[in-house]
């Protein structure tokens, strides 16, 4: 029903192998950090894709749930809780906080939903900057320890203080996220998300509880975003309000749209390509954001389906041309 052609599968396999071997080729610690960050942002963007891309609900509280994960892990590990317990706890916390948020905001639609969730995002950001006893205020929380060692059968003891180990940890979570989203999106259950996005009245009329569907998608997205945030806390070793800010939400949104909305690979491509693009515009200094802003507008006008959407269209055009050539050939011979 939902299988991909073989050459695409091979391509994904090649990317996976390259990702596994990557630490052997990166010597620069700064670059390595950028790559790890990209992975975490990719996880968060994939989650955003679930609620925005597949379910069609423009949740702009996403950065806040990333922040709940980050602050949750920071606060819990500082209180002496093991990272391995703190991470799921923070993610569950995001789901719990997401429940009232979702119950209220999902009653609204379209622009209204976007704005209500944005308000929640801004509120959490303000709280992060002002609840000094809990969050450390504007300074945030620093000196977050890397995860403790774990014992894995066959492999032995893994120590997570090295960048390489953290890289693999992040990569594992990205793969897990993609695996989960793949299963959800390519199924009848996933179709109900798209049904809600595409035609809510019809979805309702064919027996889908659209509110619950949206809520599940929202909460799944929040859970994953918080996981990404929790990993962010230990990779950076510090959190500040910007890790819960609406600026972060906008970044994810940009990765999502420019990579290609409602495609699994698009989120990952966006989350890797945009930070690298930003890095390469660094030489422009003050003009970096000027160019980036203009570029964003140009891309959304000329490639509204993002990079992956553009590729698909290119594919389509080539296929059409081939078909036309074939039929022309038949004409000539006939």
């Amino acid at each position: 029903m939902f299988t991909k052609p073989i050459h695409i599968k091979l391509f994904f396999l090649a990317v996976l192998i390259a990702a596994l071997l990557l630490p052997l080729f990166i010597s620069d610690a700064y670059m390595f950090q950028v790559v790890i960050m990209s992975i975490l942002f990719a996880i968060a963007t994939c989650a955003m894709n679930l609620i925005i891309g597949f379910t069609g609900q423009a949740s702009l509280a996403h950065g806040a749930f990333f922040g709940i994960g980050a602050y949750g892990v920071a606060i819990l590990t500082k209180a002496g809780v093991s990272f391995w317990l703190a991470l799921p706890a923070a993610a569950v916390m995001a789901v719990l906080i997401g429940l009232p948020v979702g119950l209220i905001s999902l009653r609204t639609r379209g622009h209204y939903f976007a704005i209500v969730t944005l308000c929640f995002g801004v509120i959490m950001w303000i709280v992060a900057g002002n609840w000094i006893e809990l969050t450390g205020g504007e300074n945030g929380i620093f000196g977050i320890a890397p995860p403790g060692d774990i014992l894995v059968p066959l492999i032995g003891r893994i120590d997570f203080s090295s960048q390489a180990a953290q890289y693999y940890l992040a990569l594992a979570f990205l793969l897990l996220t993609l695996w989960a989203l793949y299963r959800i999106v390519y199924s009848v259950f996933g179709l109900t998300f798209m049904a809600v996005r595409n035609n809510e009245a019809l979805a309702d009329a064919v027996g889908i509880n659209t509110f619950t569907t949206k809520l599940i998608s929202f909460e799944a997205a929040n859970f994953i975003a918080a996981l990404a945030g929790g990993l962010y806390a230990i990779v950076i070793g510090a959190v500040s309000p910007s890790a819960a800010g609406y600026g972060l939400t906008f970044n994810f949104l940009i990765y999502l749209i420019l990579g290609g909305i409602a495609t699994l690979s698009g989120s990952v491509i966006g989350a890797f390509a945009i930070p690298i693009l930003m890095e390469s515009l660094q030489f422009l200094q003050d003009y970096q954001l000027l160019i980036f802003g203009a570029l964003l507008v140009v891309v959304i006008i000329y490639f509204p389906m993002g990079f992956v959407g553009g590729l698909r269209r290119l594919n389509q055009i080539i296929a059409d041309r081939r078909r036309r050539k074939k039929s022309e050939a038949v004409h000539v011979s006939g």
Partner: peptide, 21 residues
């Protein structure tokens, strides 16, 4: 509409960078 939204974000990034420059 989400595309308008992105375009608006692009514009605001541009405007802010412009004022900064």
């Amino acid at each position: 509409p989400i595309n308008d939204f992105i375009a608006a974000i692009g514009s605001l990034v541009f405007l802010e960078a412009f004022a900064l420059a």
